[in-house]
Amino acid sequence: MSEQNVIKTAGKLGVLAVLMFGFGYALIPLYNVFCEITGLNGKTGTVSSQQVEKIVVDMNRVVTIQFDTNINGNLPWRFKSVEKKLRVHPGEVKDAVFVVENTSDRAIVGQAVPSVAPAEASIYFNKTECFCFTQQTLAPGETKEMLVRFVVGNELPDKISTMTLSYTFFMAPEDKQAADRKENTTEQQI
């Protein structure tokens, strides 16, 4: 045994521990890539409009797309879809309209998060335009119509005949922190 060898072994193991700490963080981008490939957790795909033109429409197949809306936590918004469902051919470009209303007396920034069920269908659900790509700011009492333009990939497996596109509006994280701070101070004042 020698003191030096011991320090060397310990040093290597210490480096390994630090690397594993980094690996925990690296799991996040790895996981996201994994989700995009497999559709895990219903992360939807995105295509550019040029790509869309190349997709062949499969007129022999019809898929039902249901639309669903949710509000998370304490966001004082009302959120509905205009169409309850659409029947589409794979490869066909379609629009769906959603309406959102801020029922509170302050301007609020919201962020919509999409999710598709069944999860396996989500990689075939491609959006060319979506209100979920950016944060939405609504003035007090404002009502806004928002558009999703999408196309269902024609390589969608035959066993999938119904898909649900679900959106959940969250209060944007920065806004939420600001709101919490503001309300804490009003609480103290009263």
């Binding site: 193991l13 390994l16 521990a17 630090v18 690397l19 594993m20 700490f21 980094g22 690996f23 925990g24 963080y25 799991l27």
Partner: peptide, 10 residues
């Protein structure tokens, strides 16, 4: 050594 740092990261 391989797993505890991952928990610390999480």
């Amino acid at each position: 050594i391989a797993s505890m740092p991952v928990l610390a990261g999480a």
